[in-house]
Amino acid sequence: MVAPFSQSFTIEGRNFFNAGEASTEIKSILKELGIDAAVIRRTAIATYEAEMNVVMYASRATLTLNIVPEMIRIVVDDDGPGIPDIDLAMQEGYSTATPEMREMGFGAGMGLANIKKNSDQFTITSNVGIGTRLDIVIFIS
């Protein structure tokens, strides 16, 4: 049985150089806890996509990781501009990315849809001018 675990991370926005640090650390925590490799990959991809969204659109976010024996829960709260139309943002291919983001290989409008694809439960709430919250749940067994 996986031992309960909780940790918070700060993600610095607009810093492409450090992008991926939180998801790398989370991947190594999950490995140490002996979680199944396919679950680790899904969690790492969902977290990395969420991290890249913060790097691209916000100046700061808090990522909270909670692990209980049944599931992994990741909540990302950012201070970005917010998303006026969530249904539109969830569509594959829809993007408001800048050329700089695209030069890094991101901003193709796949991120939110890919987070949902890799999650068992996914909730997104957003307030324009305040920020966006992603709530990602991945079942362990």
Binding site: I45, Y48, G105, A113
Partner: peptide, 9 residues
């Protein structure tokens, strides 16, 4: 791919 988003997906 040159699109990392596609690689992840």
């Amino acid at each position: 791919s040159d699109l990392m988003s596609d690689v992840l997906a």
